[in-house]
Computed example of a mutant assay.
Amino acid sequence: MDRTEKCILTNMCMVYKGDEILVLDRIDPNWKGLTFPGGHVEKDESFNQSVIREVFEETGLTIKNPRICGMKQFTSKNKEYRYIVFLYKTNEFEGELQSSNEGKVFWINKNDLEKYQAVPDFHELYEIFNKEELSENFNYFDEIDNKWRYINS
């Protein structure tokens, strides 16, 4: 039995200050809506280095001491590969906020999240960032018509 599988490694980071959280309003029609900054882990890059780089690229902020707080993972229906998102959070950062080609970044009060259109399963994922007893989100997604679709398992 083969114990290996293809895997895509990514990250996401909730940057916060008091009751405000930094969000990214993604413009990509394949995964559109409110989310946290993050992206792919490059070859030979540590997970920690990758989240610092990705947050900088998407927000202009340099984060410090990102703390891993959980993970999200999913496979497509054909189980061709597993997609893993390492979830981080930090309230230590410096720099000037700048949006990128990924979308607009801005601060919102965490109590206002429901007022925005978010990416699928964002609200379930947000709970992992905030509840110590949660550490993992596992779902099925499938690419249909070149768009990722959430499939409730």
Rank of each mutant, 00 (worst) to 15 (best):
E143T: 04
E54I: 02
K6H: 12
E45D: 01
K77P: 05
N101M: 06
Q117P: 04
E54L: 00
P120R: 04
E102N: 01
G33N: 00
E96D: 15
I84M: 09
F47W: 04
G95Y: 07
K64R: 06
M12I: 02
K89M: 09
N130R: 06
K32R: 13
I52N: 01
F129W: 15
L125G: 07
S76Y: 12
F86S: 06
F106C: 02
V15E: 10
V15P: 03
Q117A: 09
R3W: 11
N11T: 01
I68F: 07
T75E: 12
N78P: 00
E102C: 06
S76M: 10
K72Y: 13
R149H: 13
Y126G: 02
I68L: 15
K115W: 07
Y83K: 05
S135A: 13
T10E: 14
T90V: 06
S153M: 10
K77V: 12
A118Y: 05
G38A: 02
F122M: 09
L134F: 05
L134E: 06
C7F: 13
D121G: 00
L22A: 08
I144H: 03
E127N: 07
E5R: 15
D25N: 14
H123L: 15
E45V: 01
R3Y: 12
Q98D: 06
L24M: 05
I68P: 09
Y126P: 06
E136C: 07
Q73P: 01
N152H: 13
N152C: 08
M71Y: 08
Q117R: 10
P37M: 08
I144A: 01
F36V: 01
E58I: 05
G38K: 13
G95N: 00
N30I: 04
